[in-house]
């Protein structure tokens, strides 16, 4: 066990490229579990009405069906869901979580069953205390069921296909005439800041006018400081257009 928590696990493929799994936080996992418990409760409430109709035939048979059906639903729902939906239950779908094989391979049925059967001790003594402590102590956030099945629970934020229309790349970009500024920006701007600027441009319509002006002023101030471009290159440009030009040179190399 390693006390230092990892935020992502990188998997290297035989093709020589690597991809990252983002480890799901305990809070997201608890949220998904709460939703799944709610789903079982809701489905059972509906089924219980149908089962109660069996009492018209035999109260004894209705009792048997109710006992066995509830057991199968409470234990089998997550197994069935994770197997049919590639590592996702309804709770995990809502929270954008997925169970994956720790080596990035396809989940096997045995893995799905084993990680869920071990909930019998992960849930002990109350409210997943054993599993929660195990996940907090484990660098990859694995509860005992995940350790036994060699699985991870990962967070999958939406990854839309990039839309380059936000750059309005057909417009003249004065920054491109000054190579050193472009080089400095590409060297010094982190992917996180580049992403933030991209998001600001693609979601500009969602902001209140005052908030939008403030946001682009902040971003432009940062980029002006990094680029250290001659004043005449940025003269007359609004903050938003300057940010657009910076994102354009960060993402697109034109010849």
């Amino acid at each position: 066990m390693n006390g230092e928590r990892l935020h992502q696990v990188r998997v290297r493929t035989p093709e020589g490229v690597s991809f990252a799994f983002r480890i799901a936080s305990p809070v997201l996992r608890a949220g998904a579990t709460a939703i799944d418990i709610g789903v079982v409760f809701a489905v059972w409430s509906a089924l219980a009405v149908l089962v109660s109709l069996l009492k018209l035939v035999s109260a004894d048979i209705a009792g048997l069906v109710a006992t066995v059906l509830y057991f199968l639903l409470s234990q089998g729902y997550i197994i069935a869901a994770e197997w049919m939906w590639r590592g996702q239950s309804i709770g995990k779908r809502v929270m954008r979580l997925r169970v994956v094989d720790a080596r990035g391979l396809r989940l096997t049925f045995a893995q799905v069953v084993l990680r869920n059967l071990l909930r019998f001790i992960d849930a002990l003594p109350v409210m997943y205390l054993v599993g929660g402590v195990a996940a907090l102590l484990n660098a990859r956030g694995q509860r005992l069921g995940d350790l036994a099945a060699d699985t991870l629970v990962v967070w999958e934020p939406a990854e839309p296909v990039p839309d380059f229309a936000v750059l309005q790349g057909e417009k003249y970009n004065s920054l491109r005439t000054y190579g050193p500024a472009v080089a400095r920006l590409r060297h010094a701007v982190s992917p996180a800041i580049a992403r933030a600027a991209w998001n600001a441009l693609s979601r500009r319509e969602e902001f209140e006018p005052a908030a939008r002006v403030h946001l682009f002023a902040e971003l432009a101030g940062h980029f002006r400081h990094v680029a250290a471009a001659p004043a005449e290159l940025t003269e007359g440009l609004s903050d938003e257009q300057f940010v657009r030009n910076v994102v354009d040179v960060l993402h697109v190399s034109r010849v």
Partner: peptide, 21 residues
């Protein structure tokens, strides 16, 4: 500095890797 396309492709390759290997 291109996290968008990279994130999208990583997701695609991860899913493909699981199926192929």
């Amino acid at each position: 500095a291109e996290p968008e396309a990279r994130g999208y492709l990583e997701n695609l390759v991860a899913r493909g890797h699981a199926e192929i290997h």
